[in-house]
Nucleic acid binder design. Structure first.
Lengths: 197, 197
DNA sequence: CACTAAAGCGGAGGTGCCTCCGTTTATTTA
DNA sequence: TAAATAAACGGAGGCACCTCCGCTTTAGTG
């Protein structure tokens, strides 16, 4: 199902075709950036989205504009996943699954790093916006898990975030993802240890 | 024969034609960057230097390499001018002329700012190298002027450098150069005031 | 001087960026 | 539904980047 992406609060609605093209562009770009890095060819993105290069540039006047929208979408997806997982799984499993997904998110973020750094000098709200949302989502999951007795209650979100710090290091080694996965598992064991339920 | 030159930091001299082309490229690039900013077309630079684009890229694999060399040359020229001026003019005049030239240097530096920032993250010696040399040159001029009694003796180089701080502000206004020129004059008047000679 | 290996040259060619504007399409109005 | 209008499309065209490799020049050597 297509998600209704309405990200500008004060902007008259786009024409239906324009909205369709815009959504498609963002979707394709997200894939392209993940695969090829931020330097993915914009013409290739336009082509794969089935629109002309002019259309891409009308919607996203610079590469950074496009990167920003993709990044925000990524964050959005992560927060949405938190809400969904918590309804479909026991609270501790939800937390673990979400943290695994968080690892992917960090990987993406690292890939976008150069462009994001440029964005952050221009658009300083981006960082506070997104990091607030992500840590909020995490807090929700942890509190739910603690409340249900699936994990110990003497730990809060900021402790867990801190414990996850390890995944920020050793950025580009090929086994980074596996190692981070194990780190998450280890952390979960620690959290489950001595839980009430 | 022993390999005395095995890991010598100085690379073996370029072939005569290569050295010629390289020098010409740097000279043309300095002009181009001054005129058009760091985004000057590299192909245009190669063309104006009378060499192929391939030659430019062999000598300077990235734009930043070229920018760095141009910048170092600029600093070199500034320091050289200090030595020369002090021999050709009374010490206070030498100082004044040099400071006028320093204004030009700052203008260039501002133009290169974006690229320099990238360079500085990669090559952190660049900044300390050059700022040391420039302030050294300035100190020489000031001490000479003070010793000859052309300017007051109760001021040292760091004070003057600080007083010049004003030229760093209001970077891009059209009258920046004139204003900076007046600032230098004013500063010189202050330095001459109450001088022995 | 003639010869040769190594160093250097240069520009065609493939690709990407971005703008401009004639054409197409969605939406509004009658 | 048809016409009018504003919005959006798309891709050609011009410019720049950068690589690749066959050709030229230089600097030694006999």
């Amino acid at each position: 199902m297509t998600e209704a992406t309405r990200d500008a609060p004060v902007q008259k609605p786009l024409r239906a075709d324009a909205q369709r093209n815009r959504d498609k562009l963002v979707e394709v770009a997200a894939q392209a950036f993940a695969t090829d890095g931020v330097d993915a060819s914009l013409e290739e993105i336009a082509r794969r989205a089935g629109v002309g290069i002019g259309t891409l540039y009308r919607h996203f006047p610079t590469r950074e504009h496009l990167v920003e929208v993709v990044y925000r979408r990524e964050v959005e997806g992560l927060c949405h996943a938190a809400r969904e997982l918590v309804q479909m799984h026991p609270a501790d499993v939800a937390l673990e699954l979400w943290m695994q997904r968080f690892v992917d998110y960090i990987a993406t973020k690292r890939g976008l790093a150069t462009s994001l750094r440029i964005l952050l000098t221009t658009n300083s709200t981006l960082f506070s916006d997104t990091s607030g949302r992500v840590s909020g989502a995490m807090r929700g999951l942890i509190e739910a898990a603690a409340a249900s007795g699936k994990i110990r209650a003497d730990i809060d979100a900021s402790d867990v975030m801190h414990a996850l710090g390890g995944i920020y290091s050793a950025p580009n080694t090929p086994d980074w993802r596996e190692r981070s996965g194990r780190l998450v598992k280890l952390l979960m064991d620690g959290l489950r240890f001595g839980a009430r339920g």
